[in-house]
Simulated scan of single mutants.
Amino acid sequence: MMRVRDLGEFGLIGRIAGSLPQPPPDVVVGIGDDVAVLRGSGPDYFLATCDVQVENVHFLRTTTTPYQLGRKVVAINVSDIAAMGGTPLWALVSLALPPDTDVDFVDGLYQGMGEQIRLAGGSIVGGNLSKIHSEIVIDLCLMGSVAPERMILRKGARLGDLVLVTGSLGDSRAGLELIGHPEWSISDSARRTVIEKHLMPQPRLKEGQALARLGCVHAMADVSDGLVSDLQHICGASRVGGEIWVENLPISAACKEVAERAGQDASTWALTGGEDYELLFTAPETSVPEIQRTLADEMGTPSHVIGRIVEEMSGVQVRHADGKTVLYAGGSRGWDHFSGS
């Protein structure tokens, strides 16, 4: 008997998609991207995405405050909308709680969610409540909009495009490691930086909208599952290959400090750590100066060239400074709910 762990998260998504009837013409983008794109009666497309947070899978109540959790629940959904160049509008929240949950938990959760959705320009407009006999489950559905001419999908990367990423990579993984090892001696500034990046990531919403406005980005996703995994998603959808240049990876001093204490290579966390919620995108080399100038001048956000789109291959090639290359092939090299990674 085949079990879901044998398929893995992305294999299961493919199986589900294959079992469903073909979507109607008003579904512009269905299963396979992080956001569904729907054609309505107005000029703009509707965007719809959802993400679930499960206690003891995504968060621990012993290390995350309800307020922090509320901020993150919204932020990770806003990040998906940002990666399409869209605008968040309305959110629905389904909340499954054990009956003995302290009401203060709910108050803190909704305070965090309310603040984060207001920062994004949206509103929580409804949802659902249910009793559950085990861990807390929070599922948020976020709807938004995007002008068709500004929408950016995973597919669209072109041969010769450069691969860029905003901000820095590996900080969230460093924060997770530090939460698990509070006894580690780390500078206060580094500790604060990486733990905040893990517990309360800030989506690159304005950056995504600016990139959509420029009109030169061919494909985009947010770094949620891990850099290698998310570039694999872009390459697979675009039917191209990709290479990452390790020496170009933007890794913060805080991440490097934690990795050194952990006896780990910070570049490994940058490649596969996940939950950085930076924007990963491809664009022609000639457009890179304008992209970097726009993000820096308008948002103060750095962006870095970390690789190139190449001929189609069976995975993503990671090139090290010494010339050694490693091919990550055969599926995700990042977070997968069912495969154990």
Rank of each mutant, 00 (worst) to 15 (best):
G42T: 12
E115F: 05
I13R: 12
A190V: 11
E311I: 06
F59S: 00
I179V: 15
V305D: 01
W245L: 12
I81G: 03
S189R: 14
S94C: 02
E243F: 05
K324I: 06
A254N: 07
T64W: 07
I179H: 04
R158A: 13
R15S: 11
I81E: 00
S130R: 15
G273F: 07
S314F: 07
V318H: 05
G274F: 01
L159A: 03
Q53V: 10
L153N: 05
E183D: 15
C50N: 14
Q209F: 00
D297F: 11
E177C: 11
H218I: 04
S189C: 08
L12E: 07
A221H: 08
N128D: 13
R204P: 01
G108D: 02
V240P: 09
I306V: 15
I251S: 11
L178F: 09
G144N: 02
D222A: 07
D102P: 07
D322H: 01
E285D: 10
R192D: 13
Q111A: 15
L89Y: 06
G273H: 03
L153F: 10
P23A: 13
F281N: 01
E312W: 05
L153S: 13
F338H: 15
V73Y: 03
W335F: 13
E149W: 12
G300T: 01
V37P: 01
T63I: 11
M299A: 13
V74S: 03
N77H: 01
T294A: 12
G208H: 03
V318Q: 03
T101K: 00
Y277L: 15
A321C: 11
I195E: 13
